[in-house]
Structures are given as C-alpha cells and as structure tokens.
C-alpha cells in the first residue's frame, strides 16, 4: 500500500468515524424542519422555534433552575440505587441463603409499575425531594443489582483457588480479585442505570412537582407550548447521554483489561 493510499484510507476511517454521526443527527434536524413546515407550531414546532424558546428560557434562568433540579434528583437516585445494589448484590452473589431469601422478592418487585404507582409513593412519603429520589432509586436499582450479581459470580474459579492457596482474607479477595474482575460488568449496569435515573426523575416530576424538567414539560403540554416540550425533551436526552458517556469514560479509566 503506498503512502498516499494509506493516507486516503485513514481519512476515510476518520470521516466515517466522526463525520457520519454528525451527518445522521443533522439529517434528523433537516427532516424535522421540512415536516414542521406543513404543521402549526403547537403540533410540531420547527427546530428553529425550539432553539428560540431554549434561548428565552436560558436567559430568564428557568432552564437552568429546572435542569439542576432534575439532575440533582437523578444523581442522588443513581447514587442511592448503586449503593443499595452493590451491598445487596454482593450478599446475594456470595451467600446462598440470602439469595434464596431475597431473590424472589427482588425479582417480583420488578413487576411493580413504579411510574404508575408514583402517586402512591408521594402519598406515603410526602411531596418533597426524598420521594422523588426514592422513585429514581427504585427504577435504577434492579439493572445494577443484576450486573453486580453476574459480575461477582463470574469470577473464574481458578482465580478463586489461587487466592485460597495464598490464604487471602475476604477483604483482599474483594479488593484484589472480585472488584477488578467484576468491574466491566458493573460499568455496563451503571450505564443503563444512569440513563434510567433521568427517566425516573422525570416520571416523579410528572406526578408531583413545582420544579424540574418533568414539570417544565408538563407546563408546556398544558399551555400547548410544544416548543417548550421539545426544549425539555432535548435537555433530558442531553442529561442521559452525558451520564452514559461519563460513566463509560470512568470505566475506561478504571478498567485496564
């Protein structure tokens, strides 16, 4: 392969790696704009109108106010869900009797449509931030738990034998074997959990809130301000993406395999 040919191939790879995703996204906006031309703005606002509304809301400070509220709830819910899932998942993976005792309850609880019963949660736990974080936690908990259990159980039996030969303490086995071995699976669970936590926060705000992106979207719905709804939805997408990407980046930093 000649040098110029090589260069061309590299350029092609770079083009397809970086340019194509942007091309796809801009394509969506173009098509969206074309379609919006034949509908009134309260049915389908054009991207330009959405951008205009976004700048309005940015200037009067309400965008930032609602976004911070949602982000805080999502992050707190994710944090609580992760801690809970780590502790319970590790116990389930290591102790048979805990597995038998709790697994049926945990799995059955996943049949509960948390979003549908959200009003009940607010009746039980009040209208504050706590109840919203709780709803996030409940939604985030299960996928992370499953990944913790799978990650810990899949540690190679030979490596476990190796640690037994050298009389490793439970703490040494945890820090030097189980955590590093389970990390890739764990990060996978966290990425799913991160996305779900934003959805959980929005669902909670839909039910009962005076702040947050869910509240803002509902406000838009009530006022037939569809552009505002779109601002909210796009912000939610951005939040979920940001969490997904930063957790992936964290995983990349931590995993040396």
């Amino acid at each position: 392969m000649s040098a110029t040919e090589k260069l061309r191939v590299t350029n092609q790879i770079n083009l397809s790696k970086y340019a194509l995703p942007w091309l796809g996204v801009s394509g969506v906006f173009v098509v969206w704009h074309m379609i919006s031309l034949s509908y009134p703005p309260f049915i389908l606002p054009s991207p330009l109108l959405v951008a205009e509304r976004f700048i309005d809301r940015l200037q009067d400070g309400t965008w930032f106010f609602h976004t911070t509220a949602t982000f805080t709830e999502a992050l707190a819910g994710l944090g609580c869900g992760v801690i809970l899932a780590l502790l319970l998942g590790y116990a389930i993976a290591k102790l048979d009797w805990i597995d038998r005792l709790l697994s049926p309850i945990v799995v059955a609880s996943q049949g509960i449509p948390f979003i549908a019963v959200a009003p009940l949660i607010f009746i039980w736990f009040g209208n504050g931030m706590g109840a919203k974080i709780l709803l996030c936690t409940l939604i985030v908990f299960f996928p992370i738990l499953i990944n913790v259990v799978v990650g810990i159980r899949n540690v190679s039996p030979t490596l476990r034998d190796l640690f037994r030969v050298y009389h490793a303490s439970p703490w040494q086995s945890l820090t030097k074997l189980e955590i590093p071995a389970a990390l890739p699976t764990l990060i996978g669970g966290l990425r799913v959990g991160g996305t779900l936590s934003v959805i959980g926060a929005i669902a909670a705000e839909f039910t009962s809130a005076s702040r947050g992106l869910g509240f803002m979207i509902q406000q838009g719905n009530n006022l037939y301000d569809t552009a505002l709804v779109f601002v909210g939805v796009l912000t939610v997408i951005a939040l979920a993406l940001m969490l997904y990407i930063s957790i992936g980046w964290l995983g990349h930093k931590l995993i040396k395999i």
Partner: peptide, 24 residues
C-alpha cells in the same frame, strides 16, 4: 500450585502478577 491455564489477573502487569503472593 501452577494451574493448567496460567490463571493470571488480566488487569495486572507481568510484574504485578508475579508479586501477588507477596502482597497477599
């Protein structure tokens, strides 16, 4: 005991793998 498969920790370098028993 040396195992049939080498049973190395994939997240550790050669030297870190060899030092593992000392660390433990």
């Amino acid at each position: 005991l040396q195992f049939q498969d080498s049973a190395l920790l994939p997240w550790r370098t050669v030297e870190e793998n060899i030092r593992l028993p000392l660390e433990l």
